[in-house]
Each structure stands twice: as C-alpha cells, then as structure tokens.
C-alpha cells in the first residue's frame, strides 16, 4: 500500500513538474565525454527542472543537421565548433541554433601526437622537424617503402584540417603517407595497438579523451604560432590550395540548443550557460571511466558524488538541493 501511494505521488509530481518544462531530447553523442555531459544534463534537468528528458544517440554531423533541419534533438551538449563550423554557423545565422555556453571551459585540444616512450628515446620527436628526421621509425602498415601518418577518419571535419596541415608541413616530402583510419574506433584501435606493444605511432588525435588520458602522448610542436586567420581561412577549408603551417587553436566546445527550445525554457538555458567542465576534471573523469570500464551513467553518479562544488556552482541553491535529494 505504502509503495502504491508513493508511486502515485511520484507519478503525480512527475506530471505536474513535467508540464513546466515538457519533454526534452538530449543528444547522447557516441564518445565518452559528450555522453557523460548528456547524462549529467539529463539527471539535472529531470530532478531540478522537472523536465521529461530523453537521451537520443547521435554523432556530430547527423545531430547538427537534424537540429538545423528539424529542431530535434533540443540539446547537443558537446559540439566541437571547429569541426562543423560551416554547418553550425549557418544554423546560428538562420536562427535555428543557439550557442548556450562552453561545455569544456578550456576548449578542446587538437594536434599531432607521438607516444611518450618514443620521445624519451628520441627527444627530437617533440618537434615536427625531429619527426621528419626520424620518419623511418613510423612504419606504414601496408607499404614498407613509406612512413605512415594516421589522419582523421573519413568525413570528419578534422579530416580537412589534418590533411591540409599534412600538406603544409611537407610531410609527404619526408616520405610520409596519410592513412585514413576509417573511423574513430579504427584510429583509437591503432593507438592502443601501438602503445601496448611500444611501437611507433604518429597521427592526429584530440583531447580531452579517454585515449589521451590513458596513453600518455606528446603533442608535436609545429614550430609555428597559432594563426587564426590562416586556420579558419585555409586549414579548415576543403581544397585550400597552398595551406601554411599553423598550430591548432584551442577548439571552442559548446553546448548547442535549438532556438525553439531556448525560447521556451529560460531556466534550463541559464543552467546550460553555466554548465562547463574543466579539461583537468574531464580528463580525470574519463580516465576513471576507462580504468573502471564504467559507462557514462556510472560516471555521472561518480561525478555527482566526487565533484559537488563543481555542479553546485551551476545551480541555484534550491535546484542543487533537489538534485542532492535525488542522488
């Protein structure tokens, strides 16, 4: 009887509060950090704002396209603006998308990386000149005559920037060949394989990620400052004729929502504007996930338990209490 009453009360309260915020769809991207943020958002939206939140599996390109064309899902918690710059900018200009705030405060870090154990052996590998000098170390998996550089998976935004930088850095002259790993899983698989066997590896990757949290890699210095004009005017443009060398600028990583949603749900938008993770926290969370083989829901509870000051700073006292009560 008690149970029934409780269930009824729960149902009733859910109904009442759900009507304030309504149903919300959150894109659950297929990589760990975004999935963790999506789970945190879902929990907070459900418990502090009474939303009826639902996670929708997604990936950068399909999700942004769907948000621009259909206004669904409502929230994409981690969009790497550089990788889908054109689409997102067009969406914002047309008034279909809204940037809610940074989801990774420090921004994402892209670059060309080599494993740390290689740099210990050959300190010169810290710079691109050193990598070119030791090109013979980086064996191509299928062609013994050339060296291999693992690029970004086909169709991703970073494929364009990585291949333009490959040209700009004249890696082909140093006998490197660009390898298309096919998918993120293929790329991280190749890192894991090399790292486990202490083999040579040189390629594109980005942080914060579980892979870079777990396998210590050194970012190769291109010997050039960040040149934003060059980066956005050429490096990220497909078919740019003569790309020049520039370091990767920190990529802004945003929470993006559909305009319709942002107009209807002011309190939620306020939360989303404040909600942002530091890279150091995110790296630790991702490393914990990887080490414990936890899924993003486990990691969400771990985060709520261990980082109360972080999430409480995003919420009003009242909302924070509601979340704490639901834990």
């Amino acid at each position: 009887m008690k149970l029934k009453l409780a269930a009824l009360a729960l149902l009733a309260s859910a109904n009442v509060s759900a009507s304030e915020c309504g149903s919300v769809t959150i894109a659950d991207m297929n990589w760990s950090s975004a999935s963790l943020i999506a789970n945190v958002d879902k929990f907070i939206l459900e418990n502090a704002y009474g939303c009826d939140a639902e996670l929708i599996p997604g990936d950068t390109m399909p999700t942004t396209t769907s948000m621009i064309e259909k206004g669904q899902p409502d929230i994409a918690p981690e969009i790497w603006a550089n990788s889908v710059k054109e689409a997102v900018d067009a969406g914002v200009k047309e008034g279909r998308l809204v940037f809610a705030g940074p989801s990774l405060i420090d921004g994402g870090e892209e670059g060309f990386w080599v494993p740390k154990y290689m740099v210990e052996q050959y300190p010169e590998l810290k710079t691109i000149e050193g990598v070119k000098k030791h090109a013979a170390l980086f064996k191509h998996p299928e062609n013994k005559d050339v060296s291999g550089f693992y690029g970004c998976p086909a169709g991703w935004g970073c494929q364009i920037s990585a291949s333009n930088l490959f040209t700009a850095l004249k890696l082909a002259d140093a006998n490197f060949e660009l390898i298309d790993p096919g998918s993120a899983a293929g790329l991280s698989g190749s890192i894991a394989k090399s790292y486990e066997r202490k083999e040579a590896w040189f390629g594109y990757y980005w942080a914060p990620t579980a892979i870079l949290g777990k396998y210590e890699m050194v970012k190769v210095d291109f010997g050039a400052e960040v040149n934003e004009a060059e980066y956005f005017g050429c490096t990220t443009i497909e078919g740019c004729e003569s790309p020049k060398v520039t370091s990767y600028p920190a990529s802004p990583v945003f929470t993006v929502t559909s305009t319709e949603f942002s107009k209807k749900n002011q309190p939620v938008m306020e939360y989303l504007e404040k909600r942002g993770f530091k890279n150091s926290d995110m790296n630790k969370l991702l490393a914990w996930m990887e080490q414990e083989q936890a899924d993003s829901e486990d990691a969400m509870f771990y985060f709520f338990e261990n980082y109360p000051t972080v999430w409480k700073s995003w919420l009003s006292t009242e909302a924070a209490e509601k979340v704490a009560a639901a834990l």
Binding site: D59, M61, P62, P153, A154, G155, W156, I179, D180, P181, G182, S183, A185, G186, G189, S190
Partner: peptide, 17 residues
C-alpha cells in the same frame, strides 16, 4: 573501410557522415 581498408567503402562512409 571503417578500419582503413581503401576502396569504394571510404567514399560511402565519407558521404554518409
């Protein structure tokens, strides 16, 4: 092609993303 086999699969992957 999702694990780096070159061929017709790669443009398909690229075009679907």
């Amino acid at each position: 092609s999702m694990i780096g086999v070159k061929g017709l699969g790669q443009p398909v992957l690229k075009s679907i993303t």
